[in-house]
Design a protein around this nucleic acid. Structure first.
Length: 423
RNA sequence: GGAGAGGUGGCAGAGUGGUCGAAUGCGCGUGCUUGGAAAGCACGUGUAGGCGCAAGCCUACCGGGGGUUCGAAUCCCUCCCUCUCCGCCA
């Protein structure tokens, strides 16, 4: 959520910033609701003030006295008026809140202009895309691929996009998870194992609701949502809390399975491990002092990049343009790994600064030590990393002529052997 | 799942219709005191919104929502949560 004062005082700046995201928003409608809300609020508060004053007087009067009875009669009218105006106020307030929640975060000045993914800026390229195995081929075309990654049975048991990982397939997933968590912990992130269902309040706080309703799996009885990313439970850890300034920054990491309905993306990149309804991911999360959040974003990105470097996977970093940045983000980098078989880049991490957008929704604040004032923190998150696409690149880039896959040196201690075999 | 008891400020804990944003204690802050500390004493100590240049004023909040009433922390309904006992179960 944006600061209401910002919208009131500098609507043109807000308008221009939203335009950079290539979203259309009825800001005048929001402003009109804001004005109406404030007017109605003042009316109601005046009436309530009258009620309170009368209440104080009446407490001093004898119960059955003529003055008392007269006062009751007088205040009945005020009471009816308050009730009527309160209904009106609540209606306006609800509409205003909905409108506010539907406003996207504003992009940072350093975010490049652009409307489409093609206009994202290649921020850096790392590793040699030609240094991969000459035997590389799309992972889903590797002979006996389905022995380790059993999509057919996953479809039978659940549905498309829910594969079984078998034997070395399961083992490599576990090795990657353990490797990522260990590396992230070394980098200062405290490991957390969060709930993988969240309530609507949590999903709203991080911006999944109302923007991405329908992208999450929802339980019918409790109306819980299966987490699309560990970001949701992790960020909400401190919801409605006030942290000590000295506690900042807080670094956390968490592994969870992630569940995404991917409604509307049928037919796009769906082969093999490229896009799944359930996948494993380690997420990095930071709660930081506002003054440091862009430095923290660079550090966060470096932490994610280092994982790819240690896995010896060629990758590039994209600085996302205004139109592709996302609803809640102020600035976002995507890390894309080179998949030599498919000959394409696969997104394996998204590192974002949300500034105070999530913190305002979630009411995550800190007390300024010097002044005692309470301010919103900035939140950041990034994958560190998403498993299936890293795995896809690993399988493709490291595929040997004999059909085995060479395990990067850093991962061997975790995987327990130097080659993954499809036999 | 069944039965019962509860949810009040940072914590503990009063308050069962009116002068209650809420006693008291603890904690915390500032000052006095002291060689220094402790104790003691004094004062202060929630969050949010609106209005205002400001000082400040007003309003809301006693788990959430709704209701009764001139008036609700207090009465009623409903939901959520916690605790105890029983049942079931990794």
């Amino acid at each position: 959520m944006l600061d209401p004062k910002l919208i009131r005082e500098t609507p043109d700046l807000v308008r221009a910033a939203i335009a950079k995201k290539h979203l259309t928003v009825d800001l005048d409608g929001v402003l009109a609701l804001d004005t109406a809300w404030r007017n109605q609020l003042q009316e109601v508060e005046q009436l309530r003030s009258k009620q309170k004053a009368a209440n104080t007087d009446m407490a001093k009067l004898p119960k059955g006295s003529p003055e008392f009875i007269a006062k009751v009669q007088e205040m009945k009218a005020v009471s009816a008026q308050v009730k009527e105006r309160e209904v009106q106020l609540k209606d306006t307030e609800d509409k205003w809140k909905q409108a506010m929640l539907a406003l996207p975060n504003l992009p940072h000045a350093s975010v490049p202009e652009g409307a489409t993914p093609e206009q994202n800026v290649v921020y850096s390229t790392n590793g040699d895309v030609n240094a991969v195995s000459p035997a590389a081929k799309p992972h889903f075309d590797i002979p006996d691929f389905e022995k380790l990654f059993d999509f057919a049975r996953g479809t039978k048991v659940t549905g498309a996009g829910f594969p079984f990982y078998v034997g070395d397939g399961a083992r490599i997933v576990r090795a990657l998870l353990q490797f990522f968590l260990d590396e992230d912990t070394k980098a200062g992130y405290v490991e957390v194992n969060p709930p993988i269902f969240v309530n609507a309040a949590s999903a709203t706080a991080t911006g999944q609701l109302p923007d991405k309703e329908g992208q999450m799996y929802e339980t019918t009885e409790e109306h819980f949502y299966a987490v699309p990313t560990a970001e949701v439970p992790l960020t909400n850890f401190f919801r409605d809390e006030i942290l000590d300034e000295s506690a900042l920054p807080v670094y956390r990491c968490a592994y969870t399975p992630c569940f995404r309905r991917e409604a509307g993306s049928y037919g796009k990149d769906v082969r093999g491990l490229n896009r799944l309804h359930q996948f494993d991911k380690v997420e990095l999360l930071k709660w930081v002092h506002p003054a440091t959040s862009y430095d923290e974003l660079d550090k966060l990105r470096n932490d994610a990049e280092r994982l790819l470097q240690k896995l010896e996977l060629p990758y590039r970093v994209l600085l996302m343009c205004g139109g592709d940045i996302g609803f809640s983000q102020a600035k976002k980098f995507d890390l894309e790994v080179w998949a030599a078989g498919q000959k394409r880049w696969l997104e394996v991490s998204s590192c974002s600064n949300f500034e105070s957008f999530q913190a305002r929704r979630a009411q995550i604040r800190y007390r300024v030590k010097e002044t005692g004032k309470i301010e919103l923190v900035h939140t950041l998150n990034g994958s560190g990393l998403a498993i299936p696409r890293v795995l896809a690149a690993l399988l493709e880039n490291n595929l040997q002529a004999d059909g085995r896959v060479k395990i990067p040196a850093a991962l061997v201690p975790y995987f327990g052997k130097e080659f993954l075999s499809f036999q």
